[in-house]
Design a protein around this nucleic acid. Sequence first.
RNA 1: GCCGUCGUAGCUCAGUGGUAGAGCAUCGCCAUGGUAAGGCGGGGGUCUGGAGUUCAAAUCUCCACGACGGCUCCA
Length: 613
Amino acid sequence: MVDQKDKLHAMRHSLAHIMATAITTLWPETKLGVGPVVENGFYYDIDLGDTKISEDDFKQIETEMRKIISENQPFERSELPIDEAIQWAEKAGQTYKNELLNDLKRAGTTVAKDLDKDELGTITEGDSAVESVSFYRNGSFIDLCRGPHVESTGKVGAFKLMRVAGAYWRGKETNPQMQRLYGVAFATEKELRQYLHMLEEAKKRDHRKLGAELDLFVISPLIGAGLPLFTPRGTILRDELDKFAQSFRLNRGYQKVWIPHIAKLDTYKTSGHYEKFPELLKFTSTESGDELALKPVNCPHHTQIYASKPRSYKDLPVKYLETTTVYRDERSGELGGLSRVRAITQDDSHVFCSEDQVETVFSELLEDARTLYSQLDLELSLRLSFRDESDSYLGDPAAWDRAEAVIEKLAKQFELEYEVGIGEAAIYGPKMDFMATDALGRKTQLATVQLDYAQPERFELEYTGEDGEKHRPVMVHCALLGSLERFLSIYIEHVAGKFPVWLAPEQVRLITVNQEDKTVEFAEGVAQQAKDLGLRVHIDNDNVSVGKKIRNSELMKIPYTIVIGEKEIESGQVTPRVRSDMEVLKPHDSHAIDNFLKTVSNEMKSRTTKTSL
RNA sequence: GCCGUCGUAGCUCAGUGGUAGAGCAUCGCCAUGGUAAGGCGGGGGUCUGGAGUUCAAAUCUCCACGACGGCUCCA
């Protein structure tokens, strides 16, 4: 098994070399960057000066690659002293490789992050961190490379060039931008075809496509990019999800609050956001002269509710809950569908508590997140986001250490799978992020629980302790869904638009067989019964065929469709048509109308994903 | 913001320099129906916007805007 994985890795890596070989054959002036293996394939960064590769060139490159593959050139490894390697790079005009080699010589690494830390600025003659480097040769192509590779170019499996993208040299925005050519590769043609097929399937459940088809949200270029507008159906989804996520915390004594969406700029100067985030959206009120900003976070507002009166240790923990929208000026190229937007609605909560209450508050939220996500059928894992050694964090380092220790302890206690992300912390404290895995196996951060020692300090929050002294509370930030927008982008794709009954914007559709008064009146009666049970029901009385209306209902992914005609009016029985994905025990039974509606209503209340019809 | 691709009717798309098209949707008429598309007809486009080349531009060139895929960023 491990061998297979290593072999595939070598194939992909070898393909990166073969692609570089093809490109340097076609464009001899090409300067090469790096060409590593990535998930499902490989890429190579190249710089052709003013010439740009486009996807139209792929056919030519692929043809050249196949030529190299059919020649079955052996991959030969050789070792070169570092100084000779540098000479080679200079002679070949490979400036990027030259830079890498010099870093290797100087610091023994090419990892930019490590280099930044090191203060190994000078190279003394004859002294280097690395003695020699390895090269791989196939045909006339030579590349600095650690390997390993397959034996020869003929043994690389199936591949396809996918796309070309811009990528900064060594990932730094200030560096020149190179072109990155991505390819996918698998051991066999069959696996490649399966992968490409999976991509097609993923496209079908793209939340942007489903958002339009199911009439959930729209994005108007006039209103602006990254500012989605939710239709009546989409708003039902938002509200139901939000109600569900809030219910956990309401049960634990959280109290709802409300805040305005703007604040004086001073707020964010105090909180520290102003300094750190230039994307803060500010504007000036001409009347008062006050500088105002749209809120990029909710915590400062909530701190001021806390600070509005003296607090005793007996009041703690104080728990506020609010689903509200924050505004961030994300850069234009970063926006996309609902996953990155400029108006972000968070199901946010803030707890003000003493340090010895942190653990309880935190573990309650962990518990809730676990229940919530399992009910939504999403798998969770944890990422503990801790600080790195840079100085861009607020607050006392000793407090940070305590906080990080508490978080790691809880992660272990809950026996959740976790990884530690160094440098992923928020400016004011460490975080515990919940990574949800969706139906396509992709991991996204959704829920987050964050400890904060910094903001209570900055806003000078206090409570009076048992000892009669003033103490500083600790804040715990939490969003269980994260942002409603991003959550929906994942969730819509996870369920492919087939929402469980309790979330479906329309749960029951009544289709009339004809437009006679008798039929319409009967359907209206059924609809009213359904509404009385709290169900979301629509009547389709369009003057088209029954078959067509059934199809429309199926396309809209309505859980239950029932046809109303002579038979139903006389018998008072209906034969529900159940959406194709739902587990049905006895599909074509007929049910008394009120029993049917009650069953659906119970399914809604229990938030089940199965049907008991 | 940067690199690449794309922008034709509400949607999906055809149209390579010479009179703007199809399917679906919409509207009307006929058909009054039984579990995934009934029939016929009508309306709808400054071909994203602007400038240029040309006798002639949806089509070629440049600029702007927007969308998509990446990079960078993400409180």
